[in-house]
Each structure stands twice: as C-alpha cells, then as structure tokens.
Amino acid sequence: MVYFINDIITGALIGLLYSLVAMGFVVIYRASKVFNFAQGELVIIGGFIVWFTTMQAGLSLWLSIPLSLVLAGLVGYAIERLFLTKLIGESVFSMVMVTVGLLILLRGLVLLLFGPAVRPFPIIFPLRPLFLGDMLIPMNLLLGGIITIVAAVGLSWFFNRTRSGLRMTAVAEDHVVASSMGISVKASIAFAWVLGAILSTIGAMIFLSGKSLTFLASDIGFAALPVALFAGLESIGGLILAGVIIGIIQSLTTNYLDPLIGGSLGSVVPYIIMLAILLIRPTGLFGWRTIERV
C-alpha cells in the first residue's frame, strides 16, 4: 500500500514536470496562436545552455541559473525574430509548418554543435530524496512541482486578469483583428517565445538535474503534448490538473500493468490518452469552444 501511494505521488510529480513543459506550449499558443512543435528542442537547448554556463564556463549555480534564463530568453527572441515575425497574418498552416521545420533544424544544430555525446548535467536540486515514512520522493521533482504550481498560478493570473495578458489573448484569437485594435502582434509573439524558452529551460533544470544530458532528452516535448491537449490549449491553470492525472495514470501503468504484459505500455499511454481526448472532447478540460462562421 505504501508503494502504491508512493507511485501515485511520484507519478503526480512527474506529471507536474510535464505540465511545466506543456506550459511552454500553452504560453506560446495563448499569446500568438502558434502551436510550437519544437518545444522539446527548446528544452534541450535550455539544457545545453545550463550545461555550458556551469560545466563549461565554470560559473557557480547562483550566477549561472539567472544567466541561463536570460540566454534562453534571447534564443527564444532570436527564433521569433528570424522565423515567426515574418509570418504574421499568414495562415495557421504556415506557422505550424515553420515550427515543424524548426523542430528538425534545432535538433540538427544541437547535434552539429554538441554531438551525440552524453554529458553530465549539474546538480541543481539536492540529490537526496525526501523520506516520508517508508516513502521516498525525489527532491528535484518535488521542488519542481512547487515551481510549476507557482508558475501556473502566476501566469494564469497574468493572462486572465492583467491588461497586457488580455491583449495577448486577443492576439491568440485573431492576428488581424488584434492589430486593428491597436495591439502589437509582434510584441506579443516575441514575449510568448521568450517566456516559452525560459519555461523550457526551467523544465530542463528540473528534468535533468543530476542526470546526464543528450539530445534525446527532447522527447519530453512530445511527452508533454498530451498534457497540453488534455488541459485544453488555452488553459494554464488546467495544466496542473491534467498533468497530475496523466502522470498518475502513466506511473500506475508502468508499475502495475507493464510487468503483467511485459512491454513498455507506460511510455505510450499518454498518446493513447491524447487520442481519446481528441475523439471525445477535442477542446480538452478547460479549452475555449470556438464558433465558426463562413
């Protein structure tokens, strides 16, 4: 029973990590109507920036973490300036295709610059797990979960209650309408990508703390997709609930179903959930319902 509860707690915390990466998706979508397929690549670039500033440049953590976040923000800004500003007002199809192109472009760049070698990642969160009776809870996931919840509450407040957040929401509704209302679509998209890159870097720190870093870590971007969909692409607060549910289901499948059937169903169960969500309730739990006119 203790193990069961432990699995549930660990699963929920991993789910919160997915929520944080998915928050990158949602923030970019919420402020620019672009669905960013390259989210996992942003995570891995964040990871390499952190690795570079600590392991390579030898800065202390207190200096390197803020520096990494700033650098990641710059990378996000550069991507937006180079690729997405030019597509404002173009069809959603073009924007999505550009992010698909970015997906393989960034993957290739990371491979070219850093190669497929495995690198040690700095220990950002204490390695010692938290002992609760017989249960042990990984410290990085626990602290990461707290960061995720704080970030979700903060961003949710920002997008739903503040004036500038609501402006970005208008951009997500329609680029042309937003710009004719005097809202700067450019600024909104730029902000979204900077924020998305920073969130991805925080995700990389939590995910990789004390582990090893390779380009394969970008798979977490796709693992976070189902969470973003389940919550509904427009809802930041809903990510917490969606992440926890999917994390728990995945953890239970991995620990109890996989030994029975002898396969790695746990790794694919989020996608099965994703298909089910798309079929049953495509707007997710808290997404906007849209009305279409010709």
Binding site: L105, R107, L111
Partner: peptide, 26 residues
C-alpha cells in the same frame, strides 16, 4: 563538428529549407 554529421546536416538544411520556403515562397 562532432558525431553524425550527415543526419545532423540533413536536419539543419531541410529544417532551414522548410522555414525559408514558408517565409519567402510558400
């Protein structure tokens, strides 16, 4: 430039080509 340069180069060039065509000549 380390590692699997053919695969990596392919990704960079094709990703760049997709983005360039979407921006310049969709």
């Amino acid at each position: 430039l380390g590692g699997d340069i053919v695969f990596a180069g392919m990704n960079v060039v094709l990703g760049g080509v997709i983005a360039l065509f979407m921006i310049l000549e969709p």
